[in-house]
């Protein structure tokens, strides 16, 4: 299944970028992956078990994406670190 594979690739890339602390890219990839997964669940025949696993995993990705979003927002607002003389 092409879309499922694409979704898995995106999620795996997201996790990689997340670990590499490229949080903006990771956020984008998690959101993209979830879109693909939901499309697969909705329009492409999957077993119930597979659908459940995908939905559960999507919830995890969205949760992580939310944390990344919060972090990026805080970081943007935070003043630059003062430099010690």
């Amino acid at each position: 299944n092409n879309n499922l594979q694409k979704a898995i690739d995106l999620a795996s890339k997201a996790a990689q970028e997340d670990k590499a602390e490229n949080y903006e890219e990771a956020l984008r990839l998690y959101q993209h992956a979830v879109q693909y997964f939901l499309h697969v669940v909705k329009y492409e025949a999957q077993g119930d078990k597979a659908k459940q696993s995908i939905r559960a995993k999507c919830a995890e990705y969205l949760d992580r994406a939310e944390k990344l979003k919060e972090y990026l927002k805080k970081k943007e607002k935070a003043p630059a670190k003062p430099v010690k003389e």
């Binding site: 898995i8 997340d18 077993g47 597979a50 696993s53 972090y71």
Partner: peptide, 21 residues
């Protein structure tokens, strides 16, 4: 049955995000 196989879905990293001062 087809489509009921366990899916290997990538895990979310467990690392905490850095603190923003």
């Amino acid at each position: 049955t087809q489509g009921d196989a366990d899916l290997e879905l990538p895990e979310v990293p467990e690392e905490e995000l850095p603190e923003v001062p």
